[in-house]
């Protein structure tokens, strides 16, 4: 049971328990107005116990209780065939696939930009300000335009959403890698110079390995915002699948429980991605001889 003492199990469990208690209380508080209103209209006798019980079991609560969300998740993940439009596995997969494609595109773009910026001083002066400016445009404003413009030339489905993800996630990767590729020790760079190493040798044998901690740090940020990009890309009218579409239909029909379970699934996916990155990072670090 040693892992119990050393792992963060207890601290996580404590935070979870605390949040759950607060949540149940908040559900009562937030739903009580609607319920009391109903009781008085229908002249129903009520006491506090009834109020609490009812506020945790409403069909369209303002704030659903955790167990309602869990039950809805259970139903929509395990209760339908995964090809069904009601299945959260189906919607989750739609979002995951465009997240991953967008992340891959953003990673390639971000790394290429960083390599260019580090090696070509004109790019350093001309491109960096545009990269920063690109991130000042709210993604909610540009996402529908990307969908509409690409739709007009016949590109629909996964690609437009992936492009929105890539647009969001190339930025931390580019900025992180510019810093990472510039991080070698001056002595290590001088050493390369004494060997008369070419620029590409210096890149593969020094700059790239030196930048790996920066690469993984930016990957962890990027994979999470890539998911946000995919969901935002599913919000504009027309998207019929994905967690974003699920959120949108949920809010059309006042299905708050459905919204919350989609949100939960989204955060579970994001958490798993970041966890996977951490595992990859520690594998790579081990190969690179980082002191355990």
């Amino acid at each position: 049971m040693n892992w119990l003492r050393t792992s963060s199990f207890f601290s996580i469990a404590a935070v979870l328990a605390f949040t759950t208690v607060i949540w149940y209380g908040a559900a009562v508080y937030l739903n009580s107005d609607v319920l009391i209103d109903k009781y008085e209209r229908k002249k129903i006798d009520w006491n506090f116990t009834k109020l609490v019980e009812d506020s945790w079991a409403m069909k369209r609560p303002i704030m659903p209780a955790p167990h309602q969300i869990m039950l809805d998740m259970k139903k929509s993940i395990f209760g339908y065939k995964i090809s069904s439009k009601r299945s959260l596995v189906y919607h989750g997969w739609v979002t995951i696939s465009s997240t991953l494609v967008g992340f891959a595109m953003g990673a390639v773009l971000g790394i290429l930009l960083a390599v260019g910026i580090v090696h070509v001083s004109t790019l350093n002066k001309s491109v960096l300000p545009w990269i920063i400016a690109s991130q000042t445009i709210p993604i909610l404003a540009i996402a529908p335009m990307v969908i509409v413009v690409l739709g007009a030339i016949g590109v629909t489905g996964l690609l437009p959403k992936a492009i929105i993800s890539a647009y969001l996630c190339f930025f931390p990767i580019a900025i992180g890698m510019v810093k990472g590729l510039r991080s070698p020790d001056p002595m290590h760079l001088d050493l390369m110079k004494t060997y008369n190493a070419s620029k590409s040798q210096t890149f593969y044998k020094l700059r790239w390995p030196t930048s790996t901690p920066f690469l993984f740090a930016s990957f962890k940020v990027s994979i999470a915002i890539s998911l946000v990009g995919a969901i935002v890309g599913e919000l504009p009218a027309g998207a019929r699948a994905g967690l974003g579409a699920r959120l949108l239909t949920g809010s059309y029909y006042g299905q708050t429980v459905q919204i919350w379970s989609a949100l939960f699934v989204a955060s579970i996916i994001a958490g798993s991605f970041v966890f996977l990155m951490t595992v990859m990072e520690s594998k790579v670090q081990k190969r690179m001889g980082v002191q355990a």
Binding site: D185, D190, L191, N196, G289
Partner: peptide
């Protein structure tokens, strides 16, 4: 022409 070998003040070994 790689005429010399240079040894720095610090070992300057690549840690990876």
């Amino acid at each position: 022409q790689r005429a010399y070998g240079y040894v720095f003040q610090a070992p300057a070994l690549y840690p990876w």
